[in-house]
Nucleic acid binder design. Structure first.
Length: 592
RNA sequence: GCUGGUGUAGCUCAAUGGACAGAGCAACUCCCUUCUAAGGAGUAGGUUGGAGGUUCGAUUCCUCUCACCAGUGCCA
């Protein structure tokens, strides 16, 4: 089936080529309002300055173009020229109906190939062992998984990887905190029998103590710095043992979280494995002048100066990232390497990428950093009561708890899907780069722009379809091909509510591609929400299973035809929502 | 101080330089004998922080200014 958007562009290009020698950029956009058509272009406005002698104004030019266009685009019902010079395209019902058949009959509808066989490495989540997996990590992993799926949907060969900071000052702080505990040994053996969550909490508390002491006491600060060096150098066997134990606890705990969130990594990288190689890379480029020694440290002077090797002679995060890029590429010859972190690292990555440009120019070209904003809690006061940070686990459990009181009959499995979906959706529905305020009330709600609302809408579609399956033993929803169904009918007219759903449905593949290209899941969220609203309106106003008898000129013909069409539409909406939610990393329960 | 980001309805947020700046909460009206009312329809709510500029056209781009957040040589 023809891609109508491409058809429009090609036709326009042909016409314009006849009129002007050069090629022009043609933009086809989706109007915000259906009253302006299914597609629209501002090309007459943008190129008018070249035609000032031939035409009075952009509207004139647009009319001229439109006259020539009419014959070339049989898929359109109407092409109109409006006010300043827009050309609006209205697709014919016949075309829309063909499209619905396509969606309902193909499992892979919407799948793109813009990244076909491109190798992409995507690093995201990056929690630090010994520290809590906090809500920032939750947003990171949610966004990362969504990007991964969006890119895979465009045909990418994608590796999800996770870079975890198992050495460094933060680890030293936690270890210091642990060492302050008097009966540490017995506590540890005690905890070994306890659930992972408790162990992880124990570490989190130790970190909090270490961090506090680091700030408040010079003596503690010095000790922590010593611990840091000992870990880097593997000097102290007892300390190493403690480090390994704690590290293991953290990683087990993280593993649980990844599983719960539906992310599976291809490869884990650790700071401990890139620290030495990182140092070597920096030192080997010292002579070339890329780096220089200053006050005992090795620094890089880029956009601003950053330290790559400290005067204590261990690699900083900066140096490690250079080695990481190299090792990543050895593992997987990527065409593109994407790193997702919070906004606070923007400046950091600017400089690291500058340094990488000098050290590994080929890799630097392939590496991009994408960031996102902070997560704050709207109902956040209650969390500070515990004194520690708000963890990802806590957020999900709390969501589940609240959901349970609201929907008593919901079974455990569905509860989990909805709770995780609610939290994830709240991380995705806002534009990526802005700081957000997480609200339980909004995210759990089935009203409004929320994960559960979409899940509920999907469940509704399945509920209707299930009814059909119960009625007949095995019903395959068969939709008569539109060409036949509407043949011989004059001015077939769909119901308003049907048409709105239909007109929205056809844009799914464009939306998913754009969401991937721009790393903008919120565009997909907004689209799915819009679709759900329009479907719910349709559901409310139009009987699906028992259409009124007197639908004389419905393009799907008699009662049976109309019923089949509406079932097909319902089926298609279900497919699109389910696929859309999958791309967001959210599960779609059949019943709610 | 410097660099970057943000500022849109009471609240939380949308809006590839486009059409009358849109949603959802909250407020107020309606709609269940019928496929999930866990839903739907509607009303009200705005000088897009402020001042200039570029453009056929600015929430979007540029300059200035105010407020808040983040980053800013030995953390990650």
């Amino acid at each position: 089936m023809k891609d109508i958007k491409k058809e429009i562009v090609n036709s326009l290009r042909e016409i314009l080529k006849e009129e002007i020698s050069g090629d022009v950029e043609i933009e086809i956009s989706r109007p915000q309002d259906f009253s302006h058509g299914d597609y629209s272009t501002n090309v007459a406005l943008t190129i008018f300055h070249k035609f000032k002698e031939k035409f009075k104004n952009p509207v004139d030019l647009a009319s001229f173009i439109t006259n020539k266009l009419q014959k070339k685009l049989p898929e359109t019902d109407k092409i109109e020229v409006l006010k300043p010079g827009f050309i609006n395209f209205f697709l014919s019902e016949k075309y829309l109906l063909q499209k619905i058949d396509q969606i309902a009959s193909s499992k892979n509808y919407g799948k793109g190939d813009s990244l076909k066989s491109k190798k992409i490495m995507l690093e995201f989540a990056d929690p630090n062992p010994f520290k809590e997996f906090h809500i920032g990590h939750l947003r990171n992993i949610t966004l990362g998984e969504c990007f991964a799926r969006l890119l895979e949907y465009q045909g990418a060969d994608l590796w999800r990887v996770n870079y975890q900071g198992d050495v460094g000052l933060h680890v030293a702080r936690a270890l210091y905190g642990l060492l302050q505990i008097s009966n540490l040994k017995s506590q540890i053996s005690n905890l070994q029998k306890k659930p992972i969550g408790e162990r992880s909490k124990f570490l989190g508390d130790a970190y909090a103590r270490g961090a506090k002491d680091y700030e408040e006491s010079d003596k503690a600060k010095k000790e922590i710095q010593e611990i840091n060096l000992k870990i880097y150098r593997h000097q102290d066997p007892n300390l190493n043992k403690l480090w390994e134990e704690g590290r293991g606890w953290s990683l087990d705990h993280f593993e649980d979280i990844y599983k719960r969130l539906g992310t599976k990594y291809k490869r884990y990288y650790f700071e401990s494995e890139v620290a030495e190689p990182g140092k070597e890379i920096v030192l080997s480029h010292l002579r070339g002048g890329t780096f220089e020694r200053h006050e005992g440290a090795v620094v890089f002077r880029g956009d601003h100066t950053r330290v790559f090797i400290t005067k204590e002679d261990y690699a900083t995060y900066e140096a490690k990232d250079l080695a990481l890029a190299k090792i990543k590429f050895e593992d997987f010859k990527y065409d593109k390497s994407i790193i997702i972190t919070a906004n606070e690292q923007i400046e950091y990555f600017k400089v690291v990428l500058e340094a990488m440009k000098k050290v590994f120019p080929e890799l630097a070209k392939k590496t991009i950093h994408e960031s996102f904003g902070f997560v704050n809690l709207k109902e956040g006061k209650m969390s500070s009561r515990s004194g520690s940070v708000v963890t990802g686990e806590w957020l999900m459990s709390e969501a589940k708890k609240r959901l349970k009181t609201q929907f008593e009959k919901m079974d455990e499995e569905t509860l989990e899907k909805v709770a995780v979906g609610a939290v994830k959706y709240s991380m995705l529905k806002f534009s990526r780069t802005s700081d957000i305020l997480f609200s339980f009330d909004e995210s759990i709600s089935l009203e409004g722009n929320s994960g559960p609302y979409l899940q509920y809408t999907y469940a509704r579609t399945q509920s209707v379809l299930a009814k059909v399956k119960r009625q007949k033993s095995k019903v395959k929803i068969k939709i008569p091909t539109s060409a036949k169904a509407s043949a011989g009918r004059q001015n077939p007219k769909l119901e308003k509510e049907e048409l709105l759903v239909l007109r929205l449905l056809i844009h799914f593949s464009e939306i998913t591609r754009e969401a991937g290209e721009n790393f903008a899941p919120n565009t997909l969220c907004n689209y799915l929400f819009d679709l759900s609203q329009k479907f719910n309106n349709f559901y409310q106003k139009v009987p699906i299973l028992n259409p009124e008898v007197s639908i004389g000129n419905h393009p799907r013909g008699g009662r049976e035809g109309v019923r089949n069409f509406r079932l097909g539409l319902t089926f298609a909406v279900g497919q699109i929502i389910k696929t859309g939610l999958y791309l967001l990393g959210i599960k779609s329960p059949n019943k709610m």
